[in-house]
Design a protein around this nucleic acid. Structure first.
Lengths: 138, 138
DNA sequence: ATAAATCCTATAAAAAAGATAGACTAAAAT
DNA sequence: ATTTTAGTCTATCTTTTTTATAGGATTTAT
């Protein structure tokens, strides 16, 4: 399951995408609209900013805004940033790989093979689907 | 990521499958072979037993054994039993469904749609691949 | 200068995961 | 019958992760 953090991030990003025309959006506005604790959301938006996904402006008229178009923000990017590995096992993770202790040879490990395929199937969707794809269809 | 519990379960089941001819296997033997805390493993095997996946025999000559052939034990079954939902969001889980609070209409929610597809792709593998498929290929 | 907003870091609280303990029950050997 | 062997059951402890909060620092517009 995705953490609340990642779920909140998705909702915040959706809100920002749906209001691009309004310029920078206040944390407090997103928090109110999406029923998220304002202080928790603050941390999340900051992480998204430090990762280059969001930009921000301080002071009056400030707030957060997207640094890229929704189409250029893959869902996998958000998940990895806030939740870590997408793979089901450390030994099949592309970005957070860790060798398994008791495994003599990954090449002949059946678990490794199946979980690699699960990872591939998942990534095929999450790498290719973007923020644009999760905006409410009208 | 799968929990240690589920990972241990896989390793224990693999060991049991690879030693079916030896009759009931001791918890202590599996724990030693797979470097798992014996007490922790005890709980796991009990859960697998209560779910009908394993059988057991007490006293001398006792131990655990598979109640079905490896081919009849889908990986999804083990994961759901020990880890809970396979889906990335509660609102797309088949077995642990929970409605999302702020979502007016799941039918037009883009997040719902993408995550449903991720779930389907994952389940297609995990429901169809069984314990047999993760045994070490020789 | 002042007010408005994000930035940053630390910490607290709650929940989940991982691990352990010990008394109990059942089966087999003697 | 008694003893030994091995799983059963439930409770608790510890550690880690997740979720949430606090408050001063910094930047910007007016």
């Amino acid at each position: 399951m995705l953490s609340k953090k990642t779920q909140y991030a998705f909702h915040a990003l959706i809100y920002l995408a749906e209001n691009v025309d309004k310029g920078p959006i206040l944390i407090s506005e997103i928090a109110a609209e999406k029923s998220i604790s304002i202080k928790f959301l603050e941390n999340i938006l900051l992480e998204l900013k430090n990762a280059g996904i969001l930009g921000s402006k301080k002071g009056k008229g400030g707030g957060y805004y997207l640094m890229r178009t929704p189409k250029e923000i893959p869902l996998a990017r958000i998940i990895r940033l806030l939740d870590g590995p997408i793979a089901l096992l450390p030994c099949v993770s592309l970005n957070y790989y860790e060798r398994c202790e008791n495994c003599k040879d990954e090449a002949i490990c059946g678990l490794h093979e199946v979980m690699s395929r699960v990872r591939d199937a998942t990534l095929k969707l999450l790498e290719n689907k973007s923020l644009k794809d999760i905006l409410t269809r009208d």
